[in-house]
Design a protein around this nucleic acid. Structure first.
Lengths: 357, 357
DNA sequence: CAGAAATATGACAGCGCTATCATGTTATTC
DNA sequence: GAATAACATGATAGCGCTGTCATATTTCTG
């Protein structure tokens, strides 16, 4: 009885067992046992053409027996692919980032890449930025808001020629691919939806001004109001920071106006949940006394009750697309700069009253 | 005018400028310009002792001028430190994981390490596990539930000798450090709290049985009931999976019992929020008609209203501690196996009625 | 003040791969 | 059937660092 496992004879079965038992196998081991050169093993693992079927099979067989997998560190050092992609994020929390992470991770796995998460404070983390970019070679980088609009980051990426893709960027960058939704139009539609339900005094809570979508959404709201001949009152447009707390604060302000709004459009769901909380505190029924809409279709939207009417953006799919665009532009530089717009969807749930009935 | 920047003369200032402008500098460049050997530069960047102050300063000066940072890939290949730590996670979503991520990331930054997130499906992702572990050399790995209790993962880690720390593990592993809270006692306390408020018919919604804390919390509940002479009714203990949806389902079951519970203890806040939603649907006032408590002090706990009374565990601090323990056991193997217990805290908010008044 | 101990530095090999180039061998083409 | 193209393989030189070992030089001991 021989201990060679497949159709092809191994050169020295004993050695195979010895290696498998001791340390992690190297490409050299595989090459020797498969009776080929390291370059051929390398070709097999990089899916290069011009490898004879029988040798390829043999290499794969030996590799499997040894549980061999090419070293990330060695590949990165020797070749130009590193199999590492970076995800640069400002604050690694919240449902939005969770979704981005999921989308990225699923694609990274398919692509055989590994995701390194780097926290870069919004504006001015230049030291860490340089440190990270000059020590790690990335195959590519994905940027989430608001970092995707930090010119320091963008220029640093350009300087070293790393392919990057941006999620929901605000400022233009024709050399980097991006994914986004039409925040302006989405907010326009949402506002029009409210107007269609008979609302006229519609309060608006802005988002974090460093996130470009905040401005787009505000423009959409303003434009929709105007196009229906409704005056946009300054007192009904208040700042927010995308957080639950800031939503509450904004709601306090809006609901203390002499003429209360009949509806409040918060720039994201977390803030909308804050509005809901304040409404309840003040004894206002939602949606009977106050309608509330959010944005994002965050997890909280369906956890609070009444469930929030909101604008869904397919964040996970967008992140996955961003990953793909980044990888594509790594292979074919001419595709860098591709912009993919995703569809949004109004989720009409229970937080809006129809005033026309 | 010379272009040397500091107190020490550079060997060839012209070259410095040339290198800084072209590609990323290597250690060789720094060594040459600083007039020392590469080994000395290496010593400086690894904080080894036995480097003369003046040479060290000079090296640092040149390195700064060149924006030099040692290559992660090269260091990983050449030495035994890789500056990469792995975070193995089952499902990379939710507030709990966000907090873990934040804790890990903050420590990784301080330690000059980079975090690679790997998704490993609960049980049976052995192929990916082997692939990841044999291609990437990690300085260490942090395991979150339920993966921290997967013996296949644990043994794979042991086989290659990678230091690992576990967050809230269930099964013992004396060779790996861990952080946890006393889930049993915490659940006991929470149940006793409810009993103290006059509740006797207390429903319990279990957590995902693959997370060991689920079992501990159930034991705590059962024991507290028994120690107060209250019969634990099977019909009042129902399964859950830690999700909002499963919480709703469980609540439907519990609230359809002939004798409704006066309080429901859900194994986490997401499920508790589900209970709250169902209660509202059924027209039950919380806490007047039904008291609800959760666990974790998840973000949802303070977003829903009434805000949930819950048991806080310091997840971010625990994750940070896990990171530290892992790094410590990497330096000193004898510290592997350290167990750190964190304190929990009952957050009494608005979702529990006092029946004794 | 000899010898040991502490301090300071560099030469050089090699980590595990990939890129380049050289060199075949076998299928095409007119 | 000679010239060309397509296919297949390996030898060798690094990638940018760190580990090992050798070698000073200085500072401590009794």
């Amino acid at each position: 009885m021989r201990c060679s496992g497949g159709s092809v004879q191994l050169q020295c079965p004993g050695e195979l067992v010895a290696i498998a038992k001791s340390k992690t196998a190297t490409m050299n081991d595989v090459a020797r046992l498969a009776g080929v050169s390291m370059k051929t093993v390398s070709r097999v693992f990089n899916n290069e053409k011009y490898v004879a079927k029988d040798k390829k099979d043999k290499v794969l067989e030996v590799a499997a027996a040894l549980n061999y997998h090419p070293s990330l560190q060695a590949r990165g050092l020797a070749g130009h692919k590193t199999y590492i992609v970076g995800f640069f994020v400002d604050v690694p929390s919240g449902d939005y980032i969770s979704k981005v992470l999921r989308g990225l991770l699923s694609r990274a796995e398919e692509a055989g890449c590994h995701l390194v998460v780097e926290v870069l404070k919004d504006r001015g983390d230049e030291v860490k930025l340089k440190q990270v970019l000059s020590s790690i070679r990335f195959d590519g980088v994905v940027l989430s808001p608001p970092i995707c609009d930090d010119v320091v980051v963008l220029n640093a990426l350009r300087a070293i020629g790393v392919p990057a893709a941006r999620i929901a960027p605000g400022i233009p960058a024709t050399d980097m691919s991006e994914v986004h939704i039409d925040d302006y139009q989405a907010a326009f539609d949402m506002t029009e939806f409210l107007i269609g339900k008979g609302h006229r005094r519609i309060g608006f809570i802005k988002g974090n001004p460093n996130h470009s979508c905040s401005l787009d959404r505000e423009r959409g709201y303003v434009r929709a109001m105007q196009s229906h001949g409704i005056e946009v009152r300054n007192e009904l447009v208040v700042p927010g920071m995308f957080s639950f707390a800031s939503g509450k604060e904004a709601a306090e302000t809006l609901l203390s106006r002499a003429e209360k709004p009949t509806a409040i459009f918060a720039c994201n769901d977390e803030m909308a949940a804050g509005v809901l909380a304040v409404a309840r505190e003040k004894g206002l029924a939602v949606p009977a006394d106050l309608s509330i809409v959010g944005f994002d279709d965050d997890a909280v939207a369906t956890i609070v009750s009444p469930a929030l009417t909101t604008m869904r953006q397919p964040v996970e799919a967008m992140a996955a697309a961003a990953f793909d665009l980044m990888m594509q532009s790594a292979e074919d530089e001419s595709t860098a700069g591709t912009r993919v717009e995703h569809a949004y969807e109004l989720c009409d749930r229970e937080s809006v009253a129809d005033l026309t009935q």
